[in-house]
Amino acid sequence: MRLPNPLYRAAVFACLAAVVAAIGGCASAGPKADALQRSQYAWSGAIRWGDFEGAWGMLEPEYREEHPMTALEMERYNQVQVSYYRDNGGLSDLEAGTAARDVEIGVVNRHTLAERTARYQETWRWDEEAKRWWLTSGMPDFWQGQ
């Protein structure tokens, strides 16, 4: 059996080193960043799959108290189906405990089957006591401009 030439071994070693470096780069930026990612994922999933009551529970408690959702408003959310939820990027300042991201949401009226696009800016606040992120921007307005 013939051993691979030194150039081949060097190339394999370089590839392995690059893979190890890439995996190391995937390491978490910390518990706050992980919690933000999980919160945003849960929020977008709730909106995308029509769990508006679950999404309501992710809003900051002070916001919910100041802007209570009526049964009629909740029924309006139940009359639409979200066809997509696209993250268009955002900014976060983990030190300050704030984050924001712009999203585009495809909305289909269940009665007319008309689809439209809604834009929404999420704003998030880190609650140090609860060790969690709260959404402070309220529910998306699917009826803007109507």
Rank of each mutant, 00 (worst) to 15 (best):
F52H: 05
A130T: 03
M139E: 04
Y85S: 07
Q81P: 00
W56S: 07
K32P: 03
R119A: 08
A42D: 08
G54E: 02
Y120N: 07
D34Y: 08
Q81Y: 10
I23D: 09
S83W: 05
T112K: 04
M139Q: 02
L91E: 14
E75W: 12
S137A: 07
L113C: 04
V107E: 00
A29I: 10
M69T: 07
G89C: 01
E129H: 11
L36T: 01
A100V: 10
V103Q: 06
G97P: 00
Y77F: 15
S44T: 15
A27I: 11
G90H: 06
R9T: 11
A42V: 07
W43L: 08
H111A: 15
R116L: 07
T136L: 02
R64N: 06
G97A: 04
Q37I: 12
A11F: 11
D127N: 07
M74Y: 03
D127Q: 00
L36C: 06
D51F: 08
R2M: 14
R9V: 12
V107W: 00
L91D: 12
Q121F: 06
K131Q: 15
M139T: 00
N109K: 04
Q144R: 15
T123M: 12
A27C: 10
A27F: 13
V19E: 06
G25M: 11
N109L: 09
A130Y: 04
T123S: 11
A46L: 10
D34E: 15
V108P: 02
N88L: 15
T98D: 07
L113S: 13
E60Y: 02
D93V: 08
E115R: 14
R101C: 11
W143L: 04
M58A: 06
E104N: 09
L72Q: 13
A33C: 10
A21N: 10
W56V: 03
P4A: 15
A114E: 13
F142P: 01
V107H: 00
A22S: 14
F52V: 04
R48K: 14
E60T: 05
P4Y: 10
W133S: 02
G25T: 03
N78K: 15
E60F: 01
A33S: 15
S39N: 10
W124V: 00
L7T: 13
W124H: 05
P140G: 05
A18P: 05
A118T: 07
L91G: 10
E73G: 09
N88S: 06
R119V: 11
K32S: 08
E104V: 05
A29N: 13
E128F: 01
N109F: 03
M74R: 15
V108F: 06
R2L: 13
R86W: 11
A99T: 01
R101V: 09
C26R: 14
V20N: 09
E66Y: 09
Y77S: 04
A33N: 12
I47Y: 06
M74T: 00
S83P: 01
A18I: 12
T136M: 00
A118H: 05
A130F: 01
Q79W: 11
A22R: 14
E104G: 09
Q79T: 12
P6A: 14
D51E: 08
R76D: 12
Y85H: 13
H67P: 01
S44F: 03
L59W: 06
E95I: 13
G90F: 05
L7Q: 14
M74H: 11
E122G: 03
N5W: 13
A55T: 01
G25P: 04
E65F: 12
M139D: 02
M69V: 12
A71K: 14
Y120I: 02
R132N: 07
L36S: 05
